[in-house]
Simulated scan of single mutants.
Amino acid sequence: MERIAILADEYSFEVINVPNQTQNKAEFPGYTEKLERAKSATTSDEAVVVGIATINKQALVLAVMDSFFMMGSLNTTAGARIKAGMKVALEKKLPFVIVTASGGARMQEGIYSLLQMNSILYMKQKLDDAGLLVMSLLTDPTMGGVSASFALNNDIVLAEKQAKIGFAGERVIKKTTNERLPVDFQTAEGLYSNGFVDQVIDRKNLKQVISQLLTLHA
């Protein structure tokens, strides 16, 4: 909700209600208890919230991921809510902006989480076909299956200053390659210098920059 307050006009955000679909289908040990702890520790029932909002009076659909709920933010509910937001954007012909923050697909839901990568990209293609703007804002961290699918595959890819962005963790890559990694490895600034990100933005300037981009693509 803090992220929404930074970006959206005051009182403009209206949640697109999609029921919580999270289930422990794989009977993963301790997962049900972990979900209850996450609900108690946050103000959310899951790791994504989606709604219609305005940014400097320009309407859009805004989706925000929350790694504080659970670092494996991408699961069945997250996928359902992001796709529902994309459907509303398609119906109302609105731009779609997603703020990513995730360690990747939630391992406790196994293949059900991984399927969200492709199904979200399928819905994103529908927005492309309709000529609608799709923008992502990568925040700290954006990792795993999120970065490997819909986070970087958009018309405009922005990143918050000093955000950590990548696929596998730095420690795993070091152990696998036995190579010294660059100082700016898996940073927003490093990705920008290599052409993966369109712009790196300080948090205080995010609303202004996104507003300008929405105006240019209206």
Rank of each mutant, 00 (worst) to 15 (best):
120 I>M: 01
9 D>C: 04
185 F>R: 15
30 G>F: 00
157 V>T: 07
39 K>A: 02
85 G>E: 00
13 F>W: 08
209 V>T: 12
74 L>A: 07
77 T>W: 01
36 E>M: 13
213 L>M: 14
44 S>M: 12
20 N>Y: 14
217 H>V: 09
71 M>C: 00
82 I>D: 03
154 N>C: 12
130 A>W: 12
56 N>V: 01
72 G>D: 13
75 N>L: 06
68 F>H: 15
67 S>I: 01
29 P>Y: 09
152 L>D: 00
79 G>R: 05
18 V>K: 06
208 Q>T: 15
34 K>I: 07
63 A>R: 02
146 V>H: 07
186 Q>K: 06
25 K>E: 12
112 Y>E: 06
48 V>L: 09
177 T>I: 04
12 S>C: 07
3 R>W: 09
1 M>Q: 14
9 D>A: 12
170 E>R: 09
162 Q>L: 05
26 A>H: 05
38 A>V: 11
148 A>R: 01
64 V>W: 02
84 A>T: 10
154 N>D: 03
52 I>P: 00
39 K>E: 04
57 K>F: 11
91 E>Y: 03
117 M>G: 01
143 M>R: 14
41 A>L: 11
154 N>K: 10
100 T>S: 10
80 A>Y: 01
33 E>W: 04
218 A>L: 10
182 P>N: 05
137 L>C: 09
190 G>D: 11
27 E>G: 07
151 A>P: 05
190 G>T: 14
156 I>H: 03
86 M>T: 04
212 Q>S: 15
52 I>G: 00
98 I>P: 04
93 K>V: 01
181 L>F: 07
53 A>I: 05
23 Q>C: 13
104 G>S: 08
214 L>T: 00
173 I>V: 13
48 V>S: 11
138 L>V: 02
18 V>R: 00
212 Q>P: 06
199 Q>R: 07
117 M>D: 08
147 S>Q: 01
192 Y>D: 11
68 F>Y: 12
184 D>E: 14
33 E>Q: 10
136 S>L: 07
42 T>R: 11
194 N>T: 08
137 L>R: 07
130 A>V: 15
41 A>G: 05
46 E>G: 11
23 Q>V: 15
83 K>G: 08
168 A>G: 09
22 T>A: 12
30 G>P: 12
16 I>F: 03
62 L>G: 01
37 R>A: 08
212 Q>A: 13
144 G>Q: 10
159 A>C: 08
142 T>M: 11
122 Y>L: 05
9 D>L: 15
104 G>I: 03
43 T>Q: 09
159 A>M: 05
161 K>Y: 10
138 L>D: 04
154 N>L: 12
189 E>V: 05
102 S>W: 03
105 A>P: 00
7 L>S: 05
60 L>S: 07
198 D>R: 02
92 K>Q: 13
156 I>W: 03
195 G>C: 13
11 Y>Q: 07
120 I>T: 08
144 G>Y: 13
193 S>W: 02
216 L>G: 15
111 I>P: 01
18 V>C: 11
67 S>H: 06
35 L>F: 11
211 S>L: 09
172 V>W: 09
208 Q>W: 06
181 L>S: 10
58 Q>F: 06
144 G>E: 10
174 K>T: 08
101 A>C: 15
140 D>F: 04
122 Y>H: 14
143 M>D: 09
